[in-house]
Amino acid sequence: MRYALFLGCTIPVRGQHYELSAREVAKTIGLEFIDLEGFACCGFPVKSISAETAMVFAARNIAIASEKGLDICTLCNACTSVLTEANKELSENRELREKVNDELSKIDKEYKTGVKIKHFARILYEDFGLDKLKEEIKKDLGTLNFSAHYGCHYLRPKELYDGFDDPENPTTLDKIVRVTGANVTDYKNKLQCCGGAILGVEEDISLKMAKEKLDNVTANNIDALVTVCPFCSIMYDDNQRKIESKFNVKYDLPVLYYPQILGLALGLDQKNLGFRLNKVKANKLLEKLETGGMKYDS
């Protein structure tokens, strides 16, 4: 399985631990990532100003993958939804396709149908498959207890995602976490949005949204929250200290990217999974994993 790896804006600069762990995991289980130099912003950040320009951005990236005959693997939820939406609209609407291709012709690009776009976590669940993933597990994470945060654009709008998960009651991320042997704990208001998209508009609302999630997941005794999106992670990890001081609360909850924990279960060296870059340190959890402890009955 070969994919063009789409990093988007945030990951190469602020989510290198996500990128590093995803690359290490892919290499270990035999997924090939190809880096295409031309990949730039997906279009999401300009959609509020001009949906049409965002569409041209997305089409430009898809065209670059199409030139190489590659499908796209994304790591960010927002990139996934914007690219998938453009792909769907452009393949269904000829008039729109011609309009977008007029713009693209000025930079010698052409959108063509046929490129598939999938999030890395969905690829692991759907294309690689749970059974095969289970066979790859070298180290049982049975002493650890996680909660999963999907992130809105991983699931919605549902018309983009071929029904691979249920957006009102999602289970796929829970399943790929559970495959590591770890326990997964459900929590109140699981679908709650991280608020990342309006952080720059109204920080207050955005941080309150993230706080609700941190309150709900820490109501249970978990070792970490698991995410698959850099925006969500920035809200829960990078902004956790800010939320703690603003609202006078204490969480000290590590927020890990899914490939970081899958990497542990694949027996990869911790040093190659970027834990150094998580803002809230995961040392306690890593120690617990080394020293052993009571296994959860799941």
């Binding site: 190469p12 951005f57 713009e103 930079i107």
Partner: peptide
Amino acid sequence: RGKMGLPPVKKTFDDVTKIIKDTKLGEM
């Protein structure tokens, strides 16, 4: 990125800048 074993990423994209100009977004 290099120290972590990650490939370098491009610093600017002339064609993206051009799209912004061509789609009037630059004016806005």
